[in-house]
């Protein structure tokens, strides 16, 4: 019988806690050689959990594209350490290393989260949070969001459709901006009203402020195996980081 990590069901609580610990570990390192190793680790993790390549790359590019715009200015504004002149502007090496470190951190955490929690449904995630004793109001907000975000989307579409039927078109006029303002405002009003209706309906069925949780998760040997393998491999990758001479990455500058 073949064993596949991507098809094994682990306790969602284990996956959430592992991801969280990894994220804390990653942000606590600042030297590039360790960050490279942690990034390599998360790439291996993603490969082991068979993360879909194309869609994950698209999401990563989206995040990176956003960050690169902000990070591009970093080497020019760091203003300490050695620099070269680039088109007449000072280009600080330390700023460049910091930008690379930020990119590595973000991508490592993103890959790890996708690998461990990518297959988890939002509802399952919320239930797991509840079992981890996250305050129940946060969990309830998350659960309601999962349930009602589509309802609100449909409401918005219906209103937009009715606006178009009365000749509405997007333009850069005061009338258009005002109308969009009304649309968003009314969406808020409707949401609040709907929320009140839902609360009433829930009270009618005996709701007193706590959600009965149907799912109960079971911590099993599989989870222990996952955690211990995770830690073991993390130590291996970090040891590689120790063995690497930090200066080689910076090309002896």
């Amino acid at each position: 019988m073949s064993f596949s990590l991507s098809e094994t069901s682990f306790d969602p609580r284990t996956l959430i806690l592992l991801s969280l610990c990894f994220a804390i570990l990653v942000i606590s390192f600042s030297s590039l050689q360790f960050l490279f190793c942690l990034f390599a680790f998360s790439v291996c993790l993603a490969a082991l959990f068979k993360v879909p390549f194309v869609s994950t790359m698209k999401k990563m590019l989206l995040i990176d594209g956003f960050m690169v715009l902000a990070l591009l200015s970093l080497p020019f504004t760091f203003a300490s350490g050695s620099f070269i002149l680039f088109l007449g502007f000072p280009f600080y090496w330390d700023g460049l290393w910091l930008a690379i470190a930020i990119l590595l951190k973000a991508n490592s955490i993103f890959l790890c989260f996708t690998a461990l929690m990518g297959r988890m449904g939002l509802a399952e995630f919320a239930h797991a949070l509840a079992h981890l004793n996250v305050p129940s109001s946060f969990v309830q907000i998350l659960l309601f969001m999962v349930r009602y975000i589509d309802v609100l989307k449909l409401e918005l579409q219906r209103m937009l459709r009715a606006m178009k039927c009365r000749g509405f078109r997007y333009s850069t006029s005061w009338h258009c901006w005002k109308s969009i303002g009304h649309l968003i405002g009314m969406l808020f009003v409707r949401s609040i009203e709907r929320a009140e209706q839902i609360l009433i309906a829930m009270k009618c069925r005996g709701f007193t402020g706590t959600f009965p949780l149907l799912h109960h998760f079971h911590y099993s040997m599989k989870d222990t195996a996952l955690v211990s393998t995770f830690i073991a491999f993390l130590i291996v990758f970090l040891s590689i980081g120790f063995l690497l001479d930090g200066s080689f990455l910076k090309g002896g500058i």
Binding site: E155, R158, M159, R161, A162, M163, K164, C165, R166, G167, F168, R169, H175, S179, H182, L183, G185, M186, R190
Partner: peptide, 30 residues
């Protein structure tokens, strides 16, 4: 659309402005 009046099944979909006056004048302004 400017020559056809479509009355929606649910009036709430149609009325999106705070006041009646604003809502009724929305079409003519368009």
């Amino acid at each position: 659309r400017s020559q056809v009046g479509y009355l929606f099944q649910n009036s709430d979909d149609q009325l999106f402005c705070p006041t009646v006056e604003e809502d009724v004048s929305f079409g003519p302004l368009n």
